[in-house]
Nucleic acid binder design. Structure first.
Lengths: 215, 215
DNA sequence: GAGAAACGCGAGCGATGTCTCGTGTTTGCC
DNA sequence: GGCAAACACGAGACATCGCTCGCGTTTCTC
């Protein structure tokens, strides 16, 4: 369940092996974060983990599998910790609160796991990982659409999809800026990201409540 | 002036040479756009241009130089065609118009030269190109700051910088979505990008004009 | 404690990619 | 027409990277 067992060969692992795997994934995370996926060499990952290249391939069939497993674990952790962050909300919930809490949760996750951004945002990434990426993307879009339609019940589907894409895009742009700064400046950017999303969505929600959209 | 002459060896070029250079840059542009910088092989570029690898290295000392020269020409063309797109505007200019025209110009440029996005947005890009990227980034930020301060004369410098970064980030996010769609859907995303920027900046400009920021 | 299997090593194989070099062709100039 | 320089070629030198293989060590199991 945790590590992929190829075909139907269980390949019994000892405790030592599980430790090595965790160690290798951690090393891979730092190398991926600093150099990106393609530029990261398996030798570099092994060196970072303090083991030989051969040892690395004792646990992973190839470089892609490392990223896959890393991605899987990240996804799992995210779903577990923040799975309900984008659940539909009571339509009476103020927009500020809905956006604010969702942004806070995801920013926290991304700050804690910078690899996530590197793996999902890189344009260099090969086949299988892209599938995971697309799956996550689709999941997030679905959640955002659910959230939006709970706030805007009577929006046309095409607009709903487009608005969701925009929200995700704006979030990713903000995330990049947030990760690029630290301390008070980072907090300021988090606030600006929330502002951008709230103001983007504001007129739509405002219209729902009967407020005239200003000029 | 056009092609880099290394050190002080003029390396006279014939008309044929200039043609080859243009041909190679065009080929490089298509290969870079489709595969990204690092994945693009010099052999592939030469093949795309219909010449031998040796010929390519007659005109460019290495792979990076190709991207540099391509970037230089793109920058030059951009400055020439859209240099004034972000010039400070009359404070009386409606925000919608200022944002709209700036976005339209840059979107048009990026649609016409998709390499630009690939070169500037890739995370894989090596040393020298990053310098160009940063230079452009700084230039754009400066322009945006100028534009913003003409609209918001009394904003603190730190906020000005942050707001400019946000605008550029939001633009890049929107650009990605715009480039990912075509036809009517693309136009719709362009409009959404404008909306996002206008609504993000609206309250600031509104405050300047004495409008109370809603709720 | 003995056998088996998981673990660990590091030299090196094969593929790929950048860039060179020797040689031949075309062009500009007198 | 003749010379020098620019242009063109493509085989291959050289480096890198993903990954394998043979062999030695540790751990589990009985």
């Amino acid at each position: 369940m945790s590590v992929n067992q190829e075909k139907d060969q269980p390949r019994r692992r000892q405790a030592r092996g599980e430790r090595r795997i965790a160690q290798l994934l951690e090393a891979a995370a730092t190398v991926f974060t600093t150099t990106g996926y393609t530029a990261a060499s398996t030798n570099a990952i092994a060196r970072e983990a303090g083991v030989s290249p051969g040892t690395l391939y004792q646990f992973f069939p190839n470089k892609e599998a490392i990223a896959i497993e890393l991605g899987d674990r990240l996804m799992h952790e995210m779903r577990e910790a923040y799975g309900e962050a984008l659940a539909p909300v009571d339509p009476a919930t103020p927009l500020e609160q809905a956006v604010g809490s969702a942004v806070d949760r995801f920013i926290a996750f991304n700050c804690e796991h910078p690899v996530f951004f590197a793996l999902m945002h890189g344009p260099d990434i090969p086949g299988r990982i892209t599938e995971e990426h697309d799956a996550l993307h689709a999941t997030l879009l679905g959640r955002i659409q659910g959230l939006l339609s709970s706030l805007l019940p009577d929006i046309p589907p095409a607009d709903l999809s487009r608005t969701a894409h925009m929200c995700l895009g704006l979030y990713k742009a903000g995330l990049e800026l947030v990760l690029a700064h630290e301390g008070a400046e980072r907090d300021a950017y988090i606030q600006e990201l929330k502002n951008a999303l709230i103001r983007y969505l504001g007129p739509l929600v405002g219209a729902r409540l009967g407020h005239p959209e200003p000029s």
